[in-house]
Amino acid sequence: EPLTPAANLCKRAGIPLIVFDRKINAVPGKDFVTFIGASYVEEGRECARLLVEKLYQKYGEYKGNVVEIAGTAGSSPQIDRAAGFREIIQRFPGIKIVASQDGDYLRSNARSIMENYMERFPPGEIDAVFCHSDEMAIGAVAAIEAAGRDELLGWVVSTDGERPALKLIIEGKMLGTAQCPPYYGNLTIKTAIDFLDGKPVPPEIWLPFETFSNVNETELQKTKQYYEYLKANDLMY
């Protein structure tokens, strides 16, 4: 919403605009050139799928209680990740989201929220944690470890695919993360060049992404390989 006036100014001035990552209240291909983004809805779905199957392995049926640490209220990633997660979870009546609070994608906020959740829900009352970013997942894991709530280690899922989160997955302290593709810069510049060269540009461009987890040996090895690639190239994601 806050970005929409800038898009309107560009349109009135005849300045081509490419929008990436955050959606605006305007029509791509009409009000601006194109929107480049990842499917935050699908990221949320992937996190839910990981937890659903993990809960089935734990109980032999689809049941369990999940707490959520969401992103910045009203942002497109927060809205879409929450929607995708709920779309899957709602198919399993035995799985409940028992609490949700916005953490603004900050590690410190997530740690405080997780501390409050653990005070509110003693051992046995929550099974898993869904965070809208790896940064918040890292904060949640830190709170879990500090509180000695080991039953929650390995039950945290998040999005982004950052190197520190991959390390926690490899160590068994997180379950998985749905990657937020780190390809915006290259693709945005290429799209701008294509537009200036008169080449056709679709109104929306969606980036593919990977999911990293430790649900089985194959997925764990994939996670380890990507982690080592990031480490060797001094990349965060």
Rank of each mutant, 00 (worst) to 15 (best):
I97F: 02
G198R: 08
E171H: 07
P203D: 09
P202N: 05
V157S: 01
E171L: 08
Y183I: 14
R91I: 01
G185F: 04
D104I: 01
R81K: 11
L166K: 10
I205Y: 01
I113K: 09
I97E: 13
Q101R: 14
R120L: 12
V141H: 06
E151D: 15
L168Y: 14
I189P: 00
G161M: 03
D102I: 01
P182F: 12
R91V: 00
P122S: 08
P122D: 02
D134N: 05
K167S: 09
Y183V: 14
L153K: 11
Y184E: 08
P208T: 08
E115A: 12
A146I: 03
V98A: 08
A82C: 03
P202F: 03
D160W: 00
I113E: 10
P164N: 02
E151G: 04
A83Q: 08
H132Y: 05
I138S: 06
V129D: 02
D80Y: 13
E119W: 00
S158A: 15
W155R: 13
S108M: 10
M118D: 05
K190G: 03
Y105D: 14
K199F: 06
G103K: 04
E162N: 09
V157T: 13
A143H: 11
I193S: 05
G154S: 09
T191F: 09
Q179W: 07
G148A: 05
A142Y: 09
G148D: 05
P202W: 00
N186G: 15
G176P: 13
R163D: 01
G139K: 10
T211W: 06
L196C: 12
S133D: 11
E171I: 00
F195R: 14
M136N: 09
G176N: 11
E125I: 01
I205F: 04
I89W: 03
A128C: 15
A82Y: 02
I189F: 10
R107L: 13
G148T: 04
L152K: 07
K96T: 07
T159D: 05
Y117R: 04
T177V: 12
A110P: 00
P122Y: 05
Q90F: 08
P202R: 06
G148M: 04
G94C: 07
P93Y: 09
D160Y: 00
L106P: 00
P203Y: 05
E115D: 13
P123K: 12
I138F: 06
A146S: 14
T188Y: 00
A110Q: 03
A137W: 10
V201E: 07
F195H: 15
G124D: 08
T211L: 11
D150T: 14
A110E: 13
T177D: 13
E125H: 06
G185P: 01
P123Q: 12
D134Q: 05
E115S: 13
D127E: 08
A82L: 07
R81Y: 00
D150N: 15
I205K: 13
Y184V: 08
D197F: 06
P200H: 11
E162F: 04
R111N: 12
S112I: 10
V141G: 09
I79L: 14
D134F: 12
T211C: 11
I95W: 06
Q179V: 02
E87T: 11
R149H: 09
E119Y: 02
